[in-house]
């Protein structure tokens, strides 16, 4: 792995990272390998986020640098790009709530850490979660919410997944600022968290994939 490229991305040096990618390609590097190296830098950022060495701005900016690199590399990659293989995750903000800041950061971090993430968006009704589970067969479902009305929406969604006979096929995490252990118990979720680091920990544990 190119330490220089990692350092540039982790150091938020957008221009430097793009220059390095160009020079690696000029030197004959495999675009697919360069992309994997860039993704590995995001894993470093995720680890630093978990240790509170970096915060949401670095995750967002890192994701932006990553997107720029991917846009540059993907047209040059022949054949199928490497598929995410750490597990499939369906998530969304529950019915009645349209907040997406927290969910989007979680989606970003799960995505760059190798999960196949299906973001259902905001104000997601129960039947869309059920349909997505039937279609995508995820190991993990994530329910996000900021409002206190989300407590009941999360509970109803988890009950709806149970009514559809799917509860034992998925692990369910809930997240958002007002969520805590009490709400986890109330909703019947398997775990809860307030940030992307917690989501990554649960996803890794539940899919049996190493971080």
């Amino acid at each position: 792995m190119s330490k220089e490229l990692t350092d540039a991305i982790v150091g938020m040096d957008e221009d430097g990272a793009m220059r390095l990618v160009s020079s690696m390609l000029d030197a004959g590097a495999d675009p697919a390998e360069v992309l994997e190296e860039a993704k590995a830098a995001m894993t470093v950022l995720g680890d630093k986020f978990e240790c509170e060495e970096v915060f949401i701005p670095e995750l967002i900016m890192g994701g932006e640098i990553m997107k720029g690199i991917a846009d540059e590399l993907k047209p040059r990659i022949k054949g199928e790009a490497a598929v995410a293989d750490r597990g499939t995750i369906v998530l969304g903000t529950v019915a009645g709530d349209i907040h997406d800041i927290g969910k989007d950061v979680v989606v970003l971090m799960l995505d760059v850490n190798g999960y196949d993430v299906h973001d259902l968006g905001i104000d997601v009704p129960i039947d869309r979660f059920v349909a997505a589970i039937n279609e995508m067969r995820p190991q993990v479902v994530g329910l996000s919410g900021l409002l206190t009305l989300a407590f009941d929406s999360m509970k109803a969604t988890i009950e709806g997944i149970g009514d559809a006979g799917l509860r034992d096929q998925v692990k369910i995490m809930i997240g958002g600022s007002p969520v805590d252990e009490q709400i986890c118990t109330y909703t019947g979720a398997d775990g809860w968290g307030r940030d992307a680091a917690a989501a990554l920990r649960m996803a890794a544990e539940w899919t049996g994939s190493a971080t």
Binding site: T148, F151, P178, V179, D180, Q182, I183, Y186
Partner: peptide, 9 residues
């Protein structure tokens, strides 16, 4: 006092 307590406690 947390929302979780006021709403579900």
């Amino acid at each position: 006092v947390p929302s979780s307590l006021l709403v579900t406690g």
